[in-house]
């Protein structure tokens, strides 16, 4: 069945840019390590959306293959990131990054 409405690529890219900026703002403004981490994931997914939209526009699968790799990498990153956050929480009972100043100079 042919799609009845064709959404132009520009709109997808604009949406992905908005997601990217939201993610970046989250990283820069929030202080909770888990929220920062979620914001980074949002940024990765904004790139994924852009890649899929571009892949459709060019009529190739390269962009979609790229997305699979990004998702795999993001999953690995989640595992490592959460483990590190747990390690910090055990030691300090807090995951506020402003309280991480064991080292100075």
């Amino acid at each position: 069945m042919e799609p009845t409405v064709f959404v132009p690529t520009d709109l997808y890219v604009m949406l992905s840019a908005v997601m990217f900026v939201m993610g970046a703002m989250g990283v820069l403004l929030r202080r909770n390590a888990i929220i920062i981490f979620m914001s980074v994931e949002l940024m990765l997914n904004s790139a994924n959306l852009a890649l899929v939209a571009f892949a459709r526009q060019w009529g190739q699968v390269d962009g979609q293959v790229f997305v699979f790799f990004v998702m795999t990498v993001a999953a690995a990153e989640v595992a490592v990131g959460l483990a590190l956050i747990v390690a910090i929480f055990r030691a300090r009972k807090s995951i506020n990054i402003d309280e991480m100043h064991e080292m100075k100079g």
């Binding site: 390590a33 920062i36 990153e77 590190l84 990054i97 064991e102 080292m103």
Partner: peptide
């Protein structure tokens, strides 16, 4: 210090 180093590097 090591956990803090890892988390900072990661973020």
């Amino acid at each position: 210090r090591s956990a803090e180093s890892g988390l900072k590097y990661f973020l």
